Amino acid sequence: MRAARALTRLDEVELGDHVCWRMDPTATLLTDVRAYVADGALYGDKVVMIGSTGAATTARDCSPAASVILDLPDLADTDVMLAAVRREARTAVRQGFRSVRVLTERAPMTAPGGAEEMLAQELKLDEFASESGAIVVCAFRSSLWDAPSMERAACMHPHEMGTRAERPAFRMFSTGANEWSVDGVIDSEGADAFNAAARAAIRHTPTMKLRFDTLEMIDAAGMHALVDAARHLPDRRIEVEGANETVRLCWELAGYATDGVPVVMAA
């Protein structure tokens, strides 16, 4: 079972990790990524760079035989990006590599619907890391992000590193096909982020499972966000498992334990 944790350095990454790297304002991607790339060569991983980042030069300098740059024309297209990453992962296996370690520098999507598309990409990258054992590091420059958008992005990563790498209020990450674990606290401050994450996760599947085993608390705003996400698209259903007794009782008292609600809170 994957577990959320904080890292102090990139050389602490493990197979299956999906890391939110909040870069120090004074840091340079070229310098800080060298250990990540060098460890790829040491452990037999293929390094995959997404986008034309400065780190691409470092990857080729440090490990020219085991790196590839995906300079995609439209980084906002989730399906294209994931197809390219999965293709490289399959190729890496055939070439005899242990796995792939992906590095991408993230930038806000300003087009209409871009914020939700960004969350969908992060969830898909997390699902890819979970099922394939790949390592995915997403680098964020604080100067490019406002605080709410950065917090939303951080919540979609089970692992974090760097500046202000404190634990987000909640985290949602993959634990299987169409199954997501949610930990922490979902209250009025995090309800919008949780709603956006759930909507992004459920849009490609009629039924989604959420694990609440490590969820400490969800308040009225969080419960409303969950139900709203299930109702956002027709014929969607969310099944919640592992909720503690307090969460289940609050769910019933809020009036959501009825047949008309497309969210089922299992005992």
Results as ranks from 00 to 15, higher is better:
residue 4 A to I: 06
residue 8 T to D: 10
residue 9 R to C: 09
residue 11 D to C: 06
residue 13 V to D: 01
residue 16 G to A: 07
residue 18 H to A: 08
residue 20 C to K: 02
residue 20 C to M: 09
residue 21 W to T: 07
residue 27 A to E: 12
residue 29 L to S: 09
residue 31 T to R: 13
residue 38 A to D: 09
residue 39 D to C: 04
residue 42 L to D: 11
residue 45 D to C: 07
residue 53 T to I: 14
residue 54 G to S: 11
residue 55 A to I: 06
residue 58 T to Q: 10
residue 61 D to H: 06
residue 64 P to D: 08
residue 67 S to W: 08
residue 68 V to C: 03
residue 68 V to P: 00
residue 69 I to Q: 15
residue 70 L to W: 00
residue 73 P to E: 08
residue 75 L to H: 11
residue 75 L to N: 03
residue 75 L to P: 08
residue 76 A to E: 14
residue 76 A to R: 15
residue 77 D to K: 06
residue 80 V to A: 15
residue 81 M to D: 01
residue 81 M to N: 02
residue 83 A to V: 03
residue 85 V to T: 06
residue 86 R to I: 11
residue 88 E to D: 06
residue 88 E to M: 05
residue 88 E to T: 04
residue 90 R to G: 13
residue 98 R to T: 13
residue 99 S to M: 08
residue 101 R to I: 05
residue 101 R to D: 04
residue 104 T to V: 15
residue 108 P to L: 02
residue 109 M to H: 13
residue 110 T to V: 10
residue 111 A to H: 13
residue 112 P to V: 00
residue 113 G to T: 07
residue 116 E to R: 03
residue 119 L to N: 05
residue 128 F to R: 06
residue 132 S to M: 06
residue 136 V to W: 00
residue 136 V to Q: 00
residue 140 F to R: 06
residue 142 S to W: 08
residue 145 W to R: 03
residue 145 W to C: 00
residue 149 S to K: 04
residue 150 M to C: 08
residue 150 M to D: 06
residue 151 E to L: 11
residue 153 A to R: 12
residue 156 M to T: 12
residue 157 H to E: 10
residue 168 P to K: 02
residue 171 R to T: 01
residue 172 M to A: 13
residue 172 M to F: 05
residue 172 M to S: 11
residue 172 M to D: 05
residue 174 S to V: 04
residue 174 S to G: 08
residue 175 T to A: 07
residue 178 N to H: 10
residue 179 E to M: 14
residue 184 G to R: 04
residue 185 V to K: 00
residue 190 G to T: 10
residue 190 G to I: 05
residue 194 F to E: 06
residue 194 F to S: 07
residue 196 A to T: 15
residue 196 A to K: 07
residue 197 A to Q: 12
residue 199 R to L: 09
residue 204 H to I: 09
residue 207 T to G: 06
residue 207 T to Q: 13
residue 208 M to A: 05
residue 208 M to T: 13
residue 210 L to A: 04
residue 211 R to K: 14
residue 211 R to P: 09
residue 212 F to Y: 01
residue 214 T to S: 11
residue 216 E to S: 11
residue 218 I to Y: 01
residue 223 M to V: 00
residue 224 H to D: 15
residue 225 A to Y: 01
residue 227 V to R: 10
residue 228 D to W: 04
residue 229 A to D: 10
residue 230 A to D: 05
residue 231 R to D: 12
residue 233 L to Y: 07
residue 235 D to S: 12
residue 235 D to I: 02
residue 236 R to S: 03
residue 237 R to H: 14
residue 238 I to P: 09
residue 238 I to V: 13
residue 239 E to R: 12
residue 239 E to F: 04
residue 245 E to L: 13
residue 245 E to W: 13
residue 248 R to M: 00
residue 253 L to H: 08
residue 255 G to P: 10
residue 257 A to T: 03
residue 258 T to R: 11
residue 259 D to T: 12
residue 263 V to P: 05
residue 263 V to M: 07
